[in-house]
Design a protein around this nucleic acid. Structure first.
Length: 622
DNA sequence: TGACAATTTGTTTTT
DNA sequence: CAAATTGTCA
């Protein structure tokens, strides 16, 4: 049945803990995913809880997928029936289910990314007569987002109140949600429609939340509401790994869990099963600086010391990484390249790494952001698809009405201000001249054709038709980087081939998925930000750019108001990074770094101080 | 007035 | 280095 023999005593306690609130504080490498999966399995097998009434929440879609895979491994088909999702996907589903109650009209929900959301906010702010300069806008976005993630809209007296209201109305009018709305709207719904709350509460008899140290107030409120009837809430987290403070994460929900849930059981998992003992010691040395930290225990083999490489410049630094990977592969220490990851603080660092790895003929895979769904051409293509499925999707129309450029930019402005379906546009285009009217009519007929086709073929065929009929493909080909951007669309097409045709949801879900790893990761080195690496583990890990200015990032040093908090988050980030490898850890930094056309002198990170490291200096390459 | 090119700027992390 | 902003041409 359920085999718990390979679990430690503490792990078993966590798995078998009874009903009610349960807090598992689990350090890195303590097997928390295993425990989470085993606990769910135990609920199903041992306690006969129907899998469909168990809700497991992760932060990233990737993590959710991994957990689901584990569950299928342990439980088979029953594992598939467990609801494993992310906060945002859950929120989106709830919004969809009660769309009318939330004041949305018919038609598919559009998901606005940060760019679109910002544009809408600027528009509403301008309409309200607020000044929207380059300095004020980021402020505005930040403050408003902070309010929303806290689950507390600005009070009536707050000068931001009218903007918050107007922005929300604007979203509703366009039938759109942005990321914070996926959390705040369900909360609102639960306030105003208790019957909806009841339905959601009744659906799940057990709720489990991974990465609990990273929940924001709105997410925490969501968890509380969902479980307030029965209190069967299991949360797993590590206060030393909060790295999403800028996104509203508040570790106090974990620290004060027992205050909010007096009956809560607390279990610590602090034995590390992942890394060699020397690496665990290094992690402990770094973690000693952290508040709320507890040292990790380890009975693992001693292993090798971590290595610090001081490069002269970035080129030398990335060359070292490539050469070292080559060497490890040559001596047989690395069999599959998927056992190796390179971690960095900022996305642009991936570029130089890619160059070096390519030069050495080492296949690699860049994980996380920068890919598909963030790209403009992909968004455009998706907007065409949205229109094909629903010609009345005015948000999608507003996006593509002048792409490729017709003579419709005036009209585009109108549509974004006052949503109008394409069919009703010709009168509006009248004053712009006969050519504009003709263009609008041509556009409307293309949309009609696509709509007619939408019922027949799969999404990828529709994509082909959309790109050809609209002239988008031809237009894009002539643009800057046209070939490369067409390649992105080809990638989208490949993805769409695998999509379940009858699922109307995939369009919206696409915005939530943080990676498109159809590629086989097994034989490719993984390049990832430290943030996106959280939860991952590899045999060999390189952490590059461990310098003042990158890790800790200058941004964390700038504003002295909350400098301590910001700096500590950087330290936690470093802690996350060094706790990823199983066997081998390399830290590298560069003495010089190029940014724009200026060279900067760099100092090794303060976090390296006092760590047990073998240092070497690079002077070979030029 | 609108499309497009060149310049310039300001840079974390992501659901 | 990409996006916003300004400048130029039709």
């Amino acid at each position: 049945m359920l085999d718990l023999s390979r679990l430690s005593l503490e792990q078993r306690q966590a798995v078998l803990a009874g009903d009610g609130p349960l807090l598992i504080v689990a350090g890195p490498g303590s097997g928390k995913t295993t425990v989470l999966a085993a606990r769910i399995a135990y609920l199903v097998v041992g306690r006969h809880i129907p899998p469909t009434s168990i809700l497991a929440i992760a932060f990233a879609t990737k993590a959710a997928r991994e957990l689901r895979a584990r569950l299928v491994g342990v439980l088979g088909d029953a594992g598939r029936a467990v609801e494993v999702t992310t906060f945002h996907a859950l929120g989106l589903r709830i919004i969809r289910q009660w769309r009318e109650e939330l004041g949305f009209g018919p038609g598919p929900l559009a998901v606005y990314d940060d760019r679109e959301a910002r544009a809408l906010l600027v528009e509403t702010a301008t309409a309200l007569g607020l000044d929207t300069t380059r300095e004020t806008v980021p402020q505005l976005v930040a403050t408003l987002t902070r309010h929303r993630l806290r689950g507390e809209p600005p009070k009536d007296a707050d000068p931001l109140h009218p903007l918050a209201e107007a922005y929300e109305t604007a979203l509703r009018r366009r039938c759109a949600v942005d990321f914070p709305a996926m959390l705040t709207l369900p909360l609102r719904l639960f306030e105003t429609h208790p019957e909806a709350l009841r339905v959601c509460q009744d659906a799940y008899r057990h709720v489990l939340c991974d990465e609990f140290q990273d929940v924001c107030a709105a997410q925490y409120a969501l968890l509380r509401r969902l479980t307030e009837a029965h209190g069967n809430l299991t949360v797993v987290g590590d206060p030393c790994q909060t790295v999403y403070g800028w996104r509203g994460a508040d570790v106090r929900f974990l620290l004060h869990f027992q205050r909010d849930f007096p009956r809560a059981r607390l279990i610590h998992l602090h034995q590390n099963f992942r890394a060699t003992r020397r690496l665990v010691e290094l992690a402990n040395a770094l973690g000693a600086e952290l508040a709320y930290g507890r040292p990790l225990r380890s009975d693992n083999p001693l292993g090798d010391r971590a290595r610090l490489y001081l490069a002269r410049d970035e080129a030398t630094e990335v060359a070292f990484v490539a050469q070292e990977i080559e060497r490890l592969r040559a001596v047989g220490e690395v069999e599959r390249l998927g056992e190796v990851a390179v971690l960095y603080r900022t996305n642009p660092q991936a570029h130089r790494l890619g160059v070096a790895l390519r030069q050495h003929g080492i296949p690699y895979w860049v994980r996380g952001r920068g890919d598909l769904f963030a790209r403009r051409e992909v968004q455009d293509a998706l907007a065409y698809l949205r229109l094909a499925y629903d010609p009345a999707d005015t948000a999608a129309l507003a996006r593509i009405i002048n792409i490729p450029p017709h003579r419709l930019s005036r009209l585009a402005e109108l549509v974004s201000r006052q949503p109008t379906p394409a069919h009703d546009l010709p009168p509006l285009a009248q004053p712009l001249g006969p050519r504009a009217v003709a263009d609008v009519e041509a556009l409307a007929s293309v949309i009609d054709e696509l709509h007619a086709q939408s019922a027949r073929g799969g999404p990828y065929l529709l994509l082909d038709a959309a790109l050809d009929r609209s002239g988008y493909r031809d237009w894009l080909a002539d643009q800057m980087d046209g070939a490369q951007r067409l390649e992105h669309l080809a990638e989208l097409r490949r993805l769409l081939v695998t999509v379940d045709t009858n699922q109307a949801d995939w369009l919206a879900e696409g915005h939530l998925s943080d990676d498109v790893d159809t590629a086989d990761e097994a034989d490719q080195v993984v390049l990832t930000t430290i943030h996106a690496a959280k939860g991952g583990e590899w045999r060999v890990v390189f952490v590059v750019g461990v310098e003042e200015g990158l890790l800790p990032h200058t941004h964390a040093l700038a504003h002295d108001a909350d400098m301590d908090a910001a700096l500590e988050e950087e330290l936690r980030l470093a802690y996350v990074a060094v706790t990823r490898p199983r066997e081998r850890l390399y830290l590298t930094c560069s003495r010089w770094r190029q940014r724009g056309d200026q060279r900067y002198r760099c100092q090794p990170s303060r976090f390296l101080h006092g760590l047990p490291l073998d240092s070497s200096e690079g002077n070979s390459s030029r």
